Amino acid sequence: KLLSSIEQACDICRLKKLKCSKEKPKCAKCLKNNWECRYSPKTKRSPLTRAHLTEVESRLERLE
């Protein structure tokens, strides 16, 4: 599967780190437990900047 097509777990399953069936409108866990089942939009991760990478590398060197 391509990364862009990976389905996201519902908010509660993601928060509780449960295996989500990803069914809509309610996944199996939410249906069974009568929880409100919501699927928040995916958040875009910002790409690493060179400055951040350099900072992490220098912190790693100090720890070694």
Rank of each mutant, 00 (worst) to 15 (best):
K1G: 15
L2K: 10
L2H: 14
L2C: 13
L2T: 10
L2V: 15
L3N: 13
L3E: 15
L3G: 13
L3P: 10
L3M: 12
S4N: 10
S4A: 13
S4G: 08
S4W: 09
S5D: 13
S5L: 11
S5V: 11
S5Y: 10
S5W: 04
S5C: 12
S5F: 09
S5H: 13
I6E: 09
E7D: 11
E7S: 10
E7F: 13
Q8F: 15
Q8H: 12
A9C: 03
A9I: 08
C10L: 01
C10F: 03
C10I: 02
C10W: 02
D11T: 01
D11A: 02
D11H: 06
D11C: 04
D11Q: 10
D11M: 01
I12L: 12
I12F: 15
C13T: 02
C13L: 03
C13A: 02
C13F: 02
C13G: 01
C13P: 03
R14H: 04
R14I: 03
R14K: 09
R14S: 07
R14M: 00
L15M: 13
L15A: 12
L15D: 10
L15C: 14
L15V: 12
L15F: 11
L15P: 04
L15E: 11
K16C: 05
K16E: 00
K16V: 02
K16P: 01
K16W: 04
K16L: 02
K16Y: 03
K16Q: 00
K17Q: 07
K17W: 06
L18Y: 08
L18S: 11
L18P: 10
K19A: 05
K19N: 07
K19Y: 02
C20P: 00
C20A: 00
C20I: 06
C20T: 05
S21V: 01
S21R: 03
E23I: 08
K24C: 12
P25R: 00
P25F: 03
P25I: 04
P25T: 08
C27P: 06
C27T: 02
C27Q: 02
A28N: 10
A28E: 14
A28D: 09
K29R: 11
C30N: 07
C30M: 07
C30A: 05
C30R: 03
C30E: 05
L31H: 14
L31E: 13
K32Y: 09
K32G: 10
K32M: 10
K32P: 03
K32Q: 10
K32F: 09
K32D: 05
N33Q: 13
N33S: 14
N34A: 12
N34Q: 15
N34F: 14
W35C: 06
W35D: 09
W35Y: 14
W35R: 14
E36M: 10
E36I: 08
C37P: 00
C37V: 03
C37N: 03
R38A: 14
R38V: 10
R38F: 14
R38N: 15
Y39W: 06
Y39H: 08
Y39R: 05
Y39S: 06
S40D: 02
S40W: 06
S40K: 01
S40I: 01
P41E: 07
P41T: 04
P41L: 03
P41K: 06
P41S: 05
K42Y: 14
K42R: 14
K42F: 12
K42M: 10
K42N: 09
K42I: 08
T43K: 05
T43I: 15
T43Y: 01
R45K: 06
R45A: 04
R45H: 01
S46H: 00
S46N: 01
L48F: 06
L48P: 05
T49W: 05
R50P: 00
A51T: 05
A51Y: 07
L53N: 02
L53V: 13
L53F: 03
L53K: 04
E55W: 14
E55D: 14
E55A: 14
V56R: 00
V56K: 04
V56T: 07
V56D: 08
V56N: 00
E57R: 10
E57G: 02
S58P: 03
S58H: 15
S58D: 12
S58F: 14
S58E: 15
R59N: 05
R59S: 05
R59C: 03
E61M: 14
E61R: 12
R62Q: 11
R62M: 12
R62W: 04
L63C: 07
L63D: 03
L63M: 13
L63F: 12
L63Y: 03
E64Y: 12
E64G: 06
E64V: 10
E64C: 09
E64W: 06
